[in-house]
């Protein structure tokens, strides 16, 4: 028996992110007391179950709200300046290169790239790096991300070849150890792709909008500013921009994007447009 997730009226309340909405206790046959209520602050938009179904996640009925809460409120990295040795342009250059490497290594999942860039940004926030080691750091982050996400690992030797000999395999493995140690194995990060898929499914976006939004999301990787954003905020911005570009009629999604993506983000469109203008100009 699927417990109803939540009435739409409750989900559309004025302050959903802070409104305590307890889980529905599953209809047990027992006379014993139900499980302890989950902490407040978990809420689900209407249609979440259908959206999860559209993503092939029907099995997650029991935990749908938790998954949604986790991916949507995943905290951002602290807004911090890059280490003095690394400028935003250099970071963008390495990330751009990682995007290309990610394409060249066959079969890598999209999430692996986002995790790799997240690890890179996390490392840059807690440690310094010599400029000529930035490329090695980026590759080692991708390597660690593969170990977290992929079923089939790329060979370290082939990754070194992709680096055109600028670092050895031993150096790659040493860098891996350093990343694990510096980040203290705190590597888990849901990333923005699932947020985007969920938001798009909730909004009933067509594949074209989704594709463009995914492209914008990838462009946002290059921005040092968005590295300090919640993944859900990046996803909401990318989707919002894609819908504007393709002139998808508003279906009342925007308020939901603001609400579930990130509360109080009045600058979504302005960021989106500035990114679009900069990046598309550079790339075209």
């Amino acid at each position: 028996p699927n417990p109803p997730l939540q009435s739409p009226a409750a989900a559309l309340g004025p302050e959903p992110a802070s409104a305590p909405v307890p889980d529905n206790v599953p209809a047990g046959t027992s006379a014993s007391p139900g499980p302890p209520e989950r902490p407040p602050g978990r809420c689900a938009p209407p249609g979440l179950e259908e959206a999860l179904g559209a993503l092939g996640l029907q099995g997650e009925r029991e935990y749908a709200r938790d998954i949604f809460a986790e991916v949507m409120v995943c905290p951002a990295l602290p807004q911090m300046a890059l280490p003095s040795t690394v400028t935003p342009e250099m970071r963008a250059l390495v990330v751009d290169w990682l995007v290309q490497v990610h394409v060249r290594v066959p079969g890598l999942a999209g999430d692996t790239l986002y995790l790799a860039v997240h690890l890179l940004d996390s490392y840059l926030r807690c440690s310094r790096v010599r400029l000529h080691r930035l490329q090695l750091l980026g590759m080692a982050c991708l390597f660690v991300a593969c170990k977290m996400e992929e079923c089939v690992l790329p060979e370290p030797a082939s990754l070194c070849l992709l680096g055109a000999g600028s670092f050895s395999q031993a150096e790659l493995l040493r860098a891996e150890r350093r990343i694990l140690s510096r980040l203290d194995f705190r590597l888990h990060h849901p990333g923005p792709l699932l947020c985007l898929e969920l938001l798009a499914a909730l909004a009933g976006s067509n594949p074209q909008v989704m594709l463009l939004a995914a492209y914008f999301l990838e462009l946002s990787l290059l921005e040092v500013e968005t590295a300090g954003w919640e993944p859900s905020r990046c996803a909401a911005a990318a989707l919002s921009l894609a819908r504007r570009v393709l002139h998808v009629a508003g279906s009342g999604l925007e308020p939901a994007l603001y609400r579930y993506g990130h509360r109080g983000t009045p600058d979504l469109p302005s960021w989106s447009l500035s990114v679009l203008s900069q990046r598309v100009r550079n790339n075209c």
Binding site: R104, P156, A157, C160, L161, G163, A164, G165, S168, Q169
Partner: peptide
């Protein structure tokens, strides 16, 4: 040059 399998890469490996 990512796809060009550089001999130096092997050495480094």
């Amino acid at each position: 040059s990512m796809t060009s399998f550089h001999p130096r890469g092997r050495q480094a490996a």
